[in-house]
Amino acid sequence: MAKILEIRDLKLSFETEEGTVEALDGVYLDVEEGHFHGLIGETGCGKSITGLTVIGLLDNNARIERGEVLFRGKDLLKFTERQFQREIRGKEVAMVFQDPASSLDPVFSIKDQMLEAVRLNKKEEKQSNERIVKELLNKVKLPDVESLLEKYPHQLSGGMKQRVMIAMMLGRNPSMLIADEPTTALDVSIQAQFLRVLMDLKNTTNLTVLYITHNLAVLTEICDEVSVMYAGRIVETASIGDVFNNPSHPYTRKLVNSILRADSTLDSLEEIPGSVPRLINPPPGCRFHPRCEEAVDECSRVIPPVKEIGTNHLVACLRR
């Protein structure tokens, strides 16, 4: 299996009025082509930033300090805005965002917005483009496509909008889709519907998906591998089975034990003491050590290196 995306030692910071935010600090992430790779972590840990780096849509105040983001071997960090626009966005990597309510332009019809994407493929003929749009909308299981085309975003429900987004992003036939918390804003019943659409794509296409979420339960449904992110670093990467059955990093364990199950009682649920550190002055050494029960003195001094503790099972913890 070929790796489609390899992120190596990515360090990235933001200049803000309060100071420099060290958003990503040595991120390593490998994504296999055709796999669904989950990226999980608490709000503000740098998941979305990682996604936006791959598609070149970081805000202007972002500063990349070191590292490589290799997409099919090419370092995206060396790409100009124009190269991103011409060679990557839409064509190779597409992205779906968290809030479907604000992801579609309110003043254009669904048809116009879908066609805009499809037309970028340089296939001429208006009729074939419209046919492609309809096929895409069918693919994401949207009902009554004919009347849907003439509608405007405000006339659609959140779940429908999110499926339109997927269809629109697939319109250019990208190899990779970054889904940034796509179900967070949806009702639970609609979430399942949306995940079924993704599952279907997984079974019928060779699409690679980087699925960003803070909800571990969602990942179990669709992902092959999971990377756990904490305060700007990836602390553990493993197959979905290993994450649940053999979690290695203390943070991953806490995360797994905090999932609600049908048989869990409030007492059996674990919570993680403390909160995510502010990244303006992050803790030295392992960033998790102030909240970690297994922490020793060394943890506050040494940044834990990434170790391979099993087949495709990576962890960054001094105690392993």
């Binding site: 598609i55 849509l57 805005e81 626009q85 011409r86 990557i88 966005r89 839409g90 064509k91 597409a94 992205m95 965002f97 968290q98 809030d99 604000s102 992801s103 579609l104 332009d105 309110p106 003043v107 254009f108 805009e116 994407a117 970028l120 987004m165 629109m168 992003m169 319109g171 250019r172």
Partner: peptide, 26 residues
């Protein structure tokens, strides 16, 4: 700052089209 501007960029639309077609109209 809206997500839909990010989304049309993610489609691969040219910057000038993003500004003139989507941002300006809104």
């Amino acid at each position: 700052n809206q997500d839909y501007i990010k989304a049309v960029k993610a489609k691969g639309l040219k910057y000038s089209s993003v500004i003139v077609k989507h941002a300006l109209r809104n």
